[in-house]
C-alpha cells in the first residue's frame, strides 16, 4: 500500500513536471479604435501564434510551430481569440506564450489605452490605430527604427505561411498601397 501511494505521488510529480498546467482557459478579447476619430475599426487582422517546446532525450528541446488563429475585428472593432494553451498536450511539450499582432492595410498601430484598477496593474482595453496618411512628424520620429511585429510574424521561419493567410494578404495589400512588391511566398 505504501509503495502504491509512493507510485501515485511520483506519477503526480512527473505529470505536473511535464504537462503544461496552469494556463489560462479564457479567450482573449479586445477592441480596436481609430486614434483620431475614436471610431471602431473593422476588418483588422488579429493574428495569434503559439510555438511549442518539446523536450528531447538528453536534455535538448525542439521549438516548433504549434498553432495560429486569425480573426477579423467586427463592425464594432471587437475581437475574440481562444487561448489554445488550455488544450491538453502530451508530457514533455510546453506551449509557449502567445504572440499576437494587429494589422490593417493603411493603418499603423499606435498605442494602448489602459483601465486603471485599484491596487492592480493597468489593463489595456483598447488598441488605437492610426491611418498612415494622418501620422504626424512626431509620430514618425517615434516610429523611426522600429518594426511592426506583424512583419516579424510573417517572416518567422517556424511559422508556415499557410497558417497565417489573412495576415499575409493584408501585408501584401498594404505594400501595394505603398507601391512595394509583395512579400515572397512561403509554404
Amino acid at each position: 500500500m505504501k509503495r502504491r501511494a509512493m507510485l501515485i505521488a511520483v506519477l503526480a510529480v512527473a505529470v505536473a513536471s511535464w504537462a503544461g498546467v496552469g494556463c489560462s482557459a479564457e479567450p482573449y478579447r479586445g477592441r480596436v479604435l481609430d486614434d483620431v476619430t475614436k471610431e471602431p475599426i473593422s476588418g483588422v487582422v488579429v493574428t495569434v501564434v503559439w510555438l511549442r517546446e518539446t523536450s528531447l532525450p538528453g536534455g535538448d528541446v525542439r521549438e516548433e510551430f504549434h498553432k495560429a488563429i486569425e480573426v477579423l475585428t467586427d463592425s464594432q472593432g471587437r475581437f475574440t481569440v481562444p487561448d489554445v494553451r488550455q488544450e491538453w498536450t502530451r508530457p514533455g511539450v510546453e506551449i509557449e506564450d502567445a504572440a499576437p499582432t494587429f494589422f490593417k492595410p493603411g493603418y499603423i498601430q499606435r498605442h494602448i489605452q489602459f483601465e486603471s484598477s485599484e491596487g492592480e496593474s493597468k489593463s489595456p482595453i483598447i488598441i488605437y490605430m492610426k491611418r498612415r496618411s494622418e501620422l504626424t512628424e512626431d509620430d514618425k520620429m517615434s516610429m523611426a527604427g522600429t518594426e511592426d511585429p506583424a512583419f516579424q510574424t510573417a517572416r518567422h521561419p517556424l511559422i508556415p505561411g499557410s497558417a497565417i493567410p489573412k495576415l499575409l494578404r493584408a501585408i501584401d495589400e498594404d505594400r501595394q498601397l505603398l507601391g512595394l512588391p509583395s512579400l515572397p511566398r512561403r509554404k
Binding site: 479564457e26 499576437p100 494602448i112 493597468k122 489593463s123 489595456p124 482595453i125
Partner: peptide, 12 residues
C-alpha cells in the same frame, strides 16, 4: 487576462 494579453503584446 484578455486585457493583459493585449498589454503584453503591444507596448506597455
Amino acid at each position: 487576462l484578455a486585457l493583459v494579453f493585449v498589454l503584453a503584446c503591444y507596448g506597455r
